[in-house]
């Protein structure tokens, strides 16, 4: 199968996921409303913090709003593409019909159980990001750097979570901790990761749980605080994480036992 077939397959799955989601209108509306609350919560939290204090050193209100909406958008996208029950389905051997399709296993897994409901979070946080951007007056080159790092960082973080779900399947037999980890990463990524320690904080949230590569560093690039050398370094680190994770993903996929044994 060529790359165009893979894309067509993923888009096709999106189409049916959205159709079945919209078929239950009330349910769809509830999910959208519920997920939009992440944006409201972040907005209120940051507004209250800046109303009662001077906020975070070196970060203006709108900059922090931008960072927070970035990390919430990423989390929303993760829930969109990664099936929260993947470990459970792997354990129960329920992925046989999906994995027997003639497509790349990664394309299959990211479109097997699309979390359309989390799009509310992506959309509402995108609105907050646009609102913050409108107050920041940034150069277009900074915005492009931000988008490049955001895409690579999100891919890297997504791969990391996928591997965690496989590890949960293989060694722990339960996936709940993975979702706690995403929640934890989301809470930590809402604020600049250097406040958790200039060296330790950045190391933990870039290499151990790479949420910083998807949110903090793109935000630094957006505000023109990332030198060209660091910009290139972050791109290389992201590519290394993606390639390494893809290799590990293929290895872990071999450990999957189908329902038939």
């Amino acid at each position: 199968m060529g790359i165009l077939d893979e894309i067509a397959y993923i888009l096709n799955r999106q189409y049916y996921a959205w159709k079945s989601f919209i078929a239950y209108r009330l349910s769809a509306l509830l999910w959208f409303f519920n997920n939009s609350f992440t944006a409201v919560a972040s907005y209120v939290s940051i507004t209250v913090i800046y109303a009662i204090s001077s906020g975070i050193n070196g970060w203006s209100y709108y900059q922090l709003l931008m960072l927070s909406s970035t990390v919430n958008m990423i989390t929303g996208l993760l829930y969109y593409f990664l099936n929260p029950n993947l470990s459970h389905e792997l354990l129960a051997g329920q992925l046989d019909p999906a994995l027997s399709r003639p497509f790349n296993k990664l394309s299959i897994l990211i479109s097997d159980n699309i979390g359309v409901w989390s799009f509310g979070s992506v959309l509402s946080n995108l609105l907050i990001a646009v609102y913050a951007l409108a107050h920041l007056h940034l150069a277009i080159s900074f915005i492009i750097s931000y988008i490049i790092l955001l895409i690579l960082g999100t891919a890297g973080f997504g791969f990391f979570m996928l591997i965690m779900l496989f590890i949960a399947y293989k060694f722990i037999k339960s996936e709940e901790f993975v979702w706690r980890m995403i929640d934890f990463a989301n809470t930590a990524g809402d604020y600049p990761i250097n406040i958790y320690g200039n060296l330790i904080g950045i190391a933990i949230f870039s290499l151990l749980i790479p949420v910083g590569l998807a949110s903090y560093f793109p935000a630094l690039a957006l505000f023109g605080r990332l030198s060209l050398n660091y910009f290139i370094l972050i791109i290389l680190v992201n590519i290394a994480i993606i390639l390494f994770s893809y290799k590990i993903f293929n290895l872990l996929l071999r450990s999957y036992n189908s329902g038939g044994g």
């Binding site: 999910w31 519920n34 609350f37 829930y79 929260p84 979390g115 929640d183």
Partner: peptide, 18 residues
Amino acid sequence: YLVDLSGLSQMIYNIIYF
């Protein structure tokens, strides 16, 4: 009614937590 609660419950938990 909603079939899959995994995401919704996490989000509701976040709202209550806030």
